[in-house]
């Protein structure tokens, strides 16, 4: 039953939006599906999870887009577990989604943001011109 509901929701969205946007929505929905309690219908309606952005904020290029691989659990260190990717001047900002649909990044790890765009802007503010470096492991 839930799959039917899920499918018709996608179909409805597909009718409302262009094919490319619908694909983005579908990807976002996969990520939401593994987000657990609190990540249900409320986040499906959150434009932050399914929309791309590409803008210059305080002199830095920030880009965000849904990515495939949202069903991958756990820490690859690449952010692929979130179903979303943010880059600052081309460098990936490690981020993850909370169960309530909010977002955190490695730069702002103890503070939640409503959308990936707000997360990216907060990181730019914190960086003060510094560049992200790849995650240090071992």
């Amino acid at each position: 039953m839930s799959e039917d509901t899920h499918g018709s929701e996608l179909t409805r969205r597909r009718m409302l939006q262009g094919a490319g946007a619908a694909l983005a929505v579908a990807t976002g929905t996969i990520a939401i599906g593994v987000a657990g309690p609190g990540g249900g219908s409320a986040t499906a309606a959150d434009p932050g999870a399914s929309d791309s952005f590409d803008e210059v904020f305080q002199g830095r290029r920030i880009q965000g887009r849904p990515v495939s691989g949202g069903g991958h659990h756990g820490g690859t260190g690449t952010g692929t577990g979130t179903g979303y990717e943010v880059r600052i001047d081309g460098d990936e900002l490690h981020m993850m989604r909370n169960a309530d649909g909010t977002w955190i990044s490695v730069v702002n790890h103890y503070q939640t943001f409503a959308t990936p765009r707000a997360l990216a802007r907060a990181a730019v503010n914190d960086l003060q011109g510094a560049t992200l470096v790849p995650v240090a492991t071992a």
Binding site: G36, H73, G74, G75, R97, A99, V106, V135, A136, A138
Partner: peptide, 21 residues
């Protein structure tokens, strides 16, 4: 520092989580 960051990055609400959340 490295150990802490590794757990920060890998502790997720919908998967394995040990050091946080």
């Amino acid at each position: 520092v490295t150990t802490h960051n590794q757990f920060i990055l890998s502790d997720v609400d919908n998967g394995e989580r040990t050091g946080h959340r």
